[in-house]
Nucleic acid binder design. Structure first.
Lengths: 227, 227
DNA sequence: GGCTATCCTGAATACTCGTTCAGATCGCCG
DNA sequence: CGGCGATCTGAACGAGTATTCAGGATAGCC
């Protein structure tokens, strides 16, 4: 349906093609609404309103509400992956990279952002194949990134994991578990505590002293008040 | 609404009051439907059908669909807690108890059963206060049980946790995270692997050799083929 | 300028439920 | 027995919402 935008030949010289722009805006609006109201509570009208268009257009572009939800997921996946890769590439060593992943997951960074969306995704994945595929892909990528950092650290002689696969799986699962508390705003669970708990577990798993992950990164300018 | 069953005076001499029995059946049917279709997909008719009654009766007893869902949650909580306590009381030492908890969580035992319901609960708790309260209570109880086992083991000189609160929180969070994989039937995640991963993490956290949690319980009769 | 395909709108349609309601049924008591 | 309250049923109602549709605007192209 919707013609798969067959003849977009007319190269846009003046400005970016408006339709494409509109499409993207709708997808981002969809993500925002899902975050806010959940998959189950998201209506076509909500998406249209959030995107500043009509419900007709949402259906015109995505065929159905389910289509919009699904495409929003793959959009999220693209954005997430792009950000993760560029963020990771921007820092040097394994210790710093592990800390970065903790930052991203705890909500400080842009990539993971709000875990609410992830909880929603898990539940939808129980019964919807597209959601299942999206989640699996997202999870695999995140876990692969983590594993890369672990392996890198082991090669550098900094980390000493007993079993790389098990360590990777446990550390990413621990993140998910802690994330539930964070998403539900469990009293006592803050991004800082999330980070501390996870990095301490990483220290245990990787056979390094917990201090290895302390210090820096959290409060960049505190000692030198004004400079 | 529904009168809180005011005058149930008429003491039932012959058999248990049918209405109470019916009520319980409806609650259990509700839980089954939630497990199967999720909170979002559960309709009054589904519950009625699963319980073998009419939709009118469901509303008569619980006032609304939301009421039925909420009461189903507290029913689950009661059942869960009762089973957890009695199971834990039935085994002797800290090591055995920790293994029992791994069994229960991995799906071998009756208490946790299917993690699907838990994922559903987390998401509903994002926006529904009753669900939030139910989840918090369930979580607190489970975590308290875990903490008790850890403290008991520490007192006996078997476990050596560096920080009881952090260890408890991490081990229960890790369970939640692994449970997601289990609920989604991630390839490679089985109850056995779940148990192994979690108990190995426990060994790390508690400063005991991983072998401490191996052996027994898994395959009771393997060496002596026939007896 | 006209023609056409694409993009876009908002009202109309059709359908799915939650909830209401007008009574049946049942067990019990005076 | 006759009445009464609690329990139970299923049809009818109404609100909410995905999707359809009849057309309008727009931009490129001859």
């Amino acid at each position: 349906m919707a013609g798969t935008t067959s003849g977009q030949a007319a190269g846009g010289s003046t400005a970016a093609r408006a339709p494409e722009e509109r499409r993207r805006r709708i997808l981002e609006a969809t993500v925002a609404v899902i975050r806010d109201r959940g998959f189950a509570g998201t209506r076509v009208t909500d998406i249209a309103e959030a995107a500043g268009t009509s419900s007709g257009l949402v259906l015109y572009h995505f065929g159905s509400l389910a289509g919009a939800l699904t495409q929003a997921l793959t959009h999220v996946e693209d954005v997430f992956y792009g950000e993760l890769e560029s963020e990771l590439a921007a820092v040097p060593g394994p210790v710093e990279r592990l800390r970065l992943m903790a930052d991203l997951a705890s909500g400080a960074g842009p990539a993971v952002g709000d875990w609410t969306l992830w909880l929603e995704l898990w539940v939808r994945a129980l019964r919807d194949d597209d959601a299942r595929a999206a989640r699996e892909s997202l999870d695999r990528r995140w876990r692969a990134a983590l594993r890369r950092v672990v392996v890198e650290g082991a090669a550098a002689g900094v980390f000493h994991p007993a079993d790389v696969a098990a360590t990777t799986l446990r550390l990413s699962s621990l993140m998910d578990g802690l994330a539930i508390q964070l998403a539900l705003a469990e009293p006592g669970m803050t991004p800082a505590r999330f980070k501390r708990l996870w990095l301490d577990a990483a220290a245990l798993e990787l056979g390094v002293p917990a201090q290895a992950f302390r210090g820096r990164a959290a409060r960049p300018a505190r000692r030198r008040a004004a400079s």
